[in-house]
Design a protein around this nucleic acid. Sequence first.
DNA 1: CTCATTGTTTGTCCTGGACAAAGTGTTGAC
DNA 2: GTCAACACTTTGTCCAGGACAAACAATGAG
Lengths: 296, 296
Amino acid sequence: MSALPIAAVERDTGIPKDTLRVWERRYAFPQPVRDDKGERLYPAEQVEKLRLLRRLLDQGHRPGSIVAAPTEALAALLEPAGERGREPADPGIAALIDLVRLHRSAELRATLQQHLVKLGLQRFVSELVAPLSRAIGEAWLHGEIGVAEEHLFTEHVQNLLRSSISSLGTGSRSPRILMTTLPGEEHILGLLMVEAMLAPEGVQCISLGAQTPLADIAQAARDGQFDIVAVSFSAAFPARQAFRGIEQLRDALPASIALWAGGAALHGKRKRIDKVQQIAQLDDLLDALTDWRKAN
Amino acid sequence: MSALPIAAVERDTGIPKDTLRVWERRYAFPQPVRDDKGERLYPAEQVEKLRLLRRLLDQGHRPGSIVAAPTEALAALLEPAGERGREPADPGIAALIDLVRLHRSAELRATLQQHLVKLGLQRFVSELVAPLSRAIGEAWLHGEIGVAEEHLFTEHVQNLLRSSISSLGTGSRSPRILMTTLPGEEHILGLLMVEAMLAPEGVQCISLGAQTPLADIAQAARDGQFDIVAVSFSAAFPARQAFRGIEQLRDALPASIALWAGGAALHGKRKRIDKVQQIAQLDDLLDALTDWRKAN
DNA sequence: CTCATTGTTTGTCCTGGACAAAGTGTTGAC
DNA sequence: GTCAACACTTTGTCCAGGACAAACAATGAG
């Protein structure tokens, strides 16, 4: 557990091998030990710093100014965002985060269930789950919770959303929507939130889960006579790759099928793509749906 | 859609860039075109052959004898396995596969639901879902269904299993089991099947979903006072990597916490690891559970 | 301030070499 | 004939160091 080979570091941090080597050459960090074969072995604390760097890059920092900096200076860089962006957290959300942090599975589930019943599915998603996931993401960004806790949270919410959606039964009205994520995007919580917003409106939502290759999406959309294809991107997904993927998918789809794209990766970027409906917020989904139904 | 850069081919086929280049050097295949910057562009039909090669490798063929061979010869190689291994398929399973192939979502769901009610959760999993997933995997291997259809099937089964498990409520008896997959393994159907087998026995199952880093698993297992950690591996996961991961996880866990490992990746390999309970079949889970309860 | 131009940073790709681990085949003992 | 030990071959992954276009920042003109 003390030192990892380069392939493991790539998997754990999401930083490609090539980039790890070029950083070492240019910025003198990381500086892995070498084993008897001369291969790189990254000590745990350097991997930790690499994870931190990844977060900072996602926040918009540039490698030249942070890779070589000492770890303490980097930790400080995370703070401003914390102070600036952190609203006086909703007490309900703070309580839920505590449950996650303390591994109180049973209570977490019960509390979520309670909110769900009180708010109804759509408001539960847009008013609680969405800000809560953002808060969890931030807490992870600041090292306040671990990966396991984040996974635990995601699982519970997924279970809740899936069973709510299931109990609604298959929608019967148009449009028919095919939902999935592109290759490289494994997070499906966003997708489920979309489904939870739309299913109560009688929409026929079919999800393919994560990472469907472009060609297969297009094929399935035609075969299944769908009206709309919806894809979602988490904050962790590189924005450029997202836009490239959306453009390619738009080209692969017949003009008669609409393409909806949303998620944290697209926020803040003002880039627009022709003939693609970009969804900035969950609530916008309902407007987009109304528009579509008017037009068809 | 006509030619893909090397990074896209890696994503689509699962074959690493390094391997693609070394195959080109050694076996004169693939032979990508070069763009004006001198970078490789893989024509669609070569990518198709690469996908086929990937399937054959998973079946146990070796690169030296298949990479250079013409596509037609390779297609023929897939047949024998089909003829030899294919039992006179269970009519129920064949009917379900047809529903998947034809994108009959509503009927698929209804039929599955029907089987579930008839068989009960545990038999539904061990007698229907397990052989069905194997059959789906084979159908994909032989190109009879696409990625989208496979995803569709997985989603439906997941929804069904998750809501059944949810409706059981949290178990109250010991042991407490923490379930997840290791980094690189994104398939969680196996995990859900395990949970579905154990939850009716009153076991407290907590799932972290896919790809939890080793260190976080160990941490969470200690923090949550779990008795057992269970990990699963799909057929697509490379066996060597699985064994290495299991060994590392065993070392990271305190001796008081048991480690259970199972899944298609471990089948056929007779390798045993000390102090790890290897689960060959789903039914063995119940025996393992009985053993654990006797011993504790 | 807005837009176009120039300079810098940065990720990804390239070549060709190396080597250990996994796999295959052979030999010899029982 | 079966099994274990050995040598040989195959194969994936790593390495170094160079190159370049796309993204980004800085500068200057209208």
